[in-house]
Write a protein that binds this DNA or RNA. Sequence first.
DNA 1: ACTCGTTTCATACACTTGTTTGACATCGCC
DNA 2: GGCGATGTCAAACAAGTGTATGAAACGAGT
Lengths: 229, 229
Amino acid sequence: MMKGARATNAKRRPRSRARHSDAETRDRLLEAGRLLFSEHGFAKVSVRDICREATANVAAVSYHFGDKLGLYEEVMRGGLDMLAAFNATMLNAGPNASAAERLRHYIAKYLPRLVKPLGDDEWLPKLMRHEIREPTAAAQLVFEHAILPRMRFLAGVMAELLDCDEDDPRVGRCVVSVQAQCLFYLPDAFKTAIVPEWPPQSDAAIAAAVEHIVEFSLAGIRAIAAKKT
Amino acid sequence: MMKGARATNAKRRPRSRARHSDAETRDRLLEAGRLLFSEHGFAKVSVRDICREATANVAAVSYHFGDKLGLYEEVMRGGLDMLAAFNATMLNAGPNASAAERLRHYIAKYLPRLVKPLGDDEWLPKLMRHEIREPTAAAQLVFEHAILPRMRFLAGVMAELLDCDEDDPRVGRCVVSVQAQCLFYLPDAFKTAIVPEWPPQSDAAIAAAVEHIVEFSLAGIRAIAAKKT
DNA sequence: ACTCGTTTCATACACTTGTTTGACATCGCC
DNA sequence: GGCGATGTCAAACAAGTGTATGAAACGAGT
């Protein structure tokens, strides 16, 4: 009767540490959740799958996290700071970079990240992609930590290139134009089912795509800037 | 014992027509399938949902179509020719239209179609959007009848604007750049969960988006054409 | 040693899923 | 009228889902 209260109870681990030689059940569940949720998404993973992977009892999820969604949110929360590191390298082109250079740097870092298959340890990006395709309650976290910083970064670049304020409507549309071109290269069940060689995998093809998007977009932005409206 | 054979049996309706005053069960199932599949997608609709909507027995789907997927494919097949009509108006800008005019016409027709909510009778486009998000075996049909003609059309436009052959690698990349910008305006569970006002709904905003994509893309294409590679 | 709070366990609950079964109804046709 | 093919029906099946239960095991504190 005190089990379900575990999730809502504030103080829960005051003592009794390291009784097992291996990791505690709670940690094993989190690790199994990271692995399976990132691989198949929230809906397609059952509580029993997770408990089997974690060699834990089916009731363990309910006991330690309240319910399946509680475990999922805990998994997602546990890795949001990893995003800051990557965003930092992608959004920082160096101290004296011009707006055009910052845009090129962004695309050159972002596109390979989208195209190249993710490693087994990169569970957080995998999880985010599932979240984008079928959002759960955790979608807000993904947006705030991953999407919003990039949008702000691009908005700054665009405002400089357009020589206008950041809330000029043209800024948002240019951000969309660049972001949309990049995201089209994200592997996608439909596209790869139809065109198996999508997205291009070779480094040469990826580099060509980067170069294309940069040239295409810079020219587009200049044209929009010239329109003045 | 002859029931399941219904799906694989070639000749199935040689006689016994119009015994009911209302539509036959088979047709009611197809209509319910159109309605529910287009609204919620294949996976999220149960056989019982369909049979309740069609006021038919749960066994009716198995009897008439073999299984749930058989009904789904029959539903999809029954409307693929509707696509030809819309593609015709979207891909035909008039006899003497220049390449730039054809591109503008395409975007101006396509984007509102993506943004504006679909009517209750437009079940086929709804169904296609579900198919794109989580493809089933019918994805190939969607691609051939809906996507491929548009890609070919855009490739022709690009080849003319770039003044090159259609299998020039720049053609494909420009097609992607234009198509990606348009598709970003497709309503999306994640985007609307995060930015409720996405995509823009007012006619003015849509017109501005169309204008933006046209200007942005034409300038981009010109820049790519100038690069010669 | 004996509690007592914490954790694990096998098991059960209540529900949904797609599909099948065998009895029953209905019709055209000889 | 009776035959046989064609549909329809309530009910059941087998497998899955998330979650709850109550009894055990366990380790630390007194």
